[in-house]
């Protein structure tokens, strides 16, 4: 597992797509901060914008990295030399979590540092509340990783990137529409907790999150279900 993980991590850090993704997502965060300067409206950038943008950026990079293993045939090398399919999935998962975490850290660092540089009024933000919300957003983003891996394993090629985008768009649409339409519907609100984009209209760094433990449980259960489904599928699946 260590060999696999070392090789996968080095490959990610040596690839340009990782740095492009990191650069552009951070740049986008700074752009949002910049265009909202006139209204001094910082709220919505570190929370909703992160939930809206990062799944696309991290998803694209992760899907590109994994699908390229299938298209180049390098996954065959892993299997031939005796690495188990389960270890391959775990290694990908850890790498994908690292990518997501780094993207998130850079996004938030870009947002806050640029806001500070542009002299935004951040005095009304409560540190404790901000950290609590940011941690929650981070967990939601990390849970998204397992869904991307499942798609990549099913499609085994770059088609998975397109599918991942379509799914994230669909969720974005449902979330932004549904969040308001079903604001009184408890079942709908619960279902939306299972997806990072589902919390788009709910989470804000200025207010205490509603039952954060429930959101964490939902995110964790989504992750576990996705991971177990991926393992079950990939373990017995004949590769193309």
């Amino acid at each position: 597992m260590n060999k696999l993980l070392t090789a996968d991590i080095i490959r990610i850090f040596k690839g340009k797509s990782f740095y492009y993704g990191l650069f552009f997502s951070t740049l986008l965060a700074m752009f949002f901060v910049f265009i909202n300067k006139s209204s001094n409206d910082f709220i919505g950038i570190p929370d909703s914008s992160a939930l809206m943008i990062l799944p696309f950026f991290t998803g694209a990079v992760i899907a590109l990295k994994i699908s390229s293993e299938f298209t180049s045939g390098v996954i065959r090398n892993k299997l031939i030399m005796g690495h188990s399919r389960i270890k391959i999935i775990f290694s990908w998962s850890i790498c994908a979590l690292i990518i997501t975490l780094l993207f998130y850290i850079f996004f938030e660092a870009g947002t806050f540092s640029f806001a500070y540089l542009l002299s935004y009024n951040l005095s009304h933000l409560e540190t404790k509340l901000v950290i609590k919300n940011l941690l929650l957003i981070g967990i939601l983003l990390l849970s998204n990783v397992f869904f991307i891996i499942l798609i990549c394993v099913i499609y085994e090629d770059t088609k998975s990137i397109v599918l991942m985008f379509l799914f994230e768009y669909a969720l974005l649409f449902i979330s932004s529409m549904g969040g308001e339409l079903f604001s009184d519907n408890k079942t709908a609100q619960l279902l939306l907790r299972f997806f990072p984009l589902g919390q788009l209209t709910v989470l804000s760094v200025t207010k205490a999150p509603d039952r954060p433990w429930l959101t964490i449980i939902c995110a964790l259960s989504t992750s576990i279900i996705m991971l177990v489904t991926t393992l079950a599928y990939f373990r017995k699946h004949d590769m193309k």
Partner: peptide, 11 residues
Amino acid sequence: IGAVVENPSIF
């Protein structure tokens, strides 16, 4: 074992 099955597996 070393193998090249179908296409060479290279990045």
